[in-house]
Design a protein around this nucleic acid. Structure first.
Lengths: 110, 110
DNA sequence: AATCTATGTCGTATGTTTGCGTCATTAAAC
DNA sequence: GTTTAATGACGCAAACATACGACATAGATT
């Protein structure tokens, strides 16, 4: 079998799908929400906030970092995580555009 | 191992994650986009539009139906699929709300 | 220098998704 | 009534995601 056919599709759809996939786990959404509200966004604080093991939370943080939603900044022994506001604005635009595109158009509704 | 800890999180995050997951594959996004533009949204037409086997496309359609993004209406031998505009509006609201929530707030940026 | 602490990486078990071929079903066409 | 066509359901294999314990590392504390 060949498998993994995602690159047969338009690049904009691929990017949107990638972002959607990262947002497809409640733990990662909870991390984003927490980062938006807290002042000190130290990795350890996030771990305490999320009901999963430290390792798993760390993994979710790496995922969020991979697509650019958050940044990590080493501060001695600790790591400060924070949202990437420009990336979030970008995502907001992408999603709004797509959702408008498919809801405004004149297709037949049943 | 216990696995599957998604229900440890807020219900709104769970619902949003579920929707995001459905939108996390370019084929499903392509289907949504196609349904928005076409007049006749017969299952067979969708299959021809998507570079995957008929079986796989059918599976993706079931996924989209499962979360309520599309509806299917049997018309003799064929099935007419169409977007559920109210569901899309709902999703648009949910995503916009969440993304605003995490981008407007006053967290420390790095 | 020895120890402690915060964090990341690796390996691993298990569950889930993707993709497709084959079969079943049901309506249309003949 | 038999055949053809459109679709969904079933089953399988490969890939991927989730979750976590154990280990590694590197800065702080003593």
């Amino acid at each position: 079998m060949t498998y993994k056919k995602t690159d047969l599709f338009d690049e904009d759809l691929q990017r949107m799908a990638e972002v959607a996939k990262v947002m497809s786990h409640p733990a990662r959404l909870a991390i984003l929400r927490y980062l938006a509200n807290c002042k000190s966004c130290i990795s350890g604080d996030i771990t305490n906030e999320i009901p999963l093991s430290r390792t798993t939370v760390s993994q979710h943080l790496q995922e969020l970092k991979r697509v650019g939603l958050i940044h990590g900044e080493i501060d001695g022994l600790k790591v400060n995580y924070c949202l990437c506001t420009s990336c979030i604005d970008d995502i907001k635009k992408t999603f709004t555009l797509f959702l408008n595109e498919i809801s405004i158009s004149e297709s037949i509704k049943c």
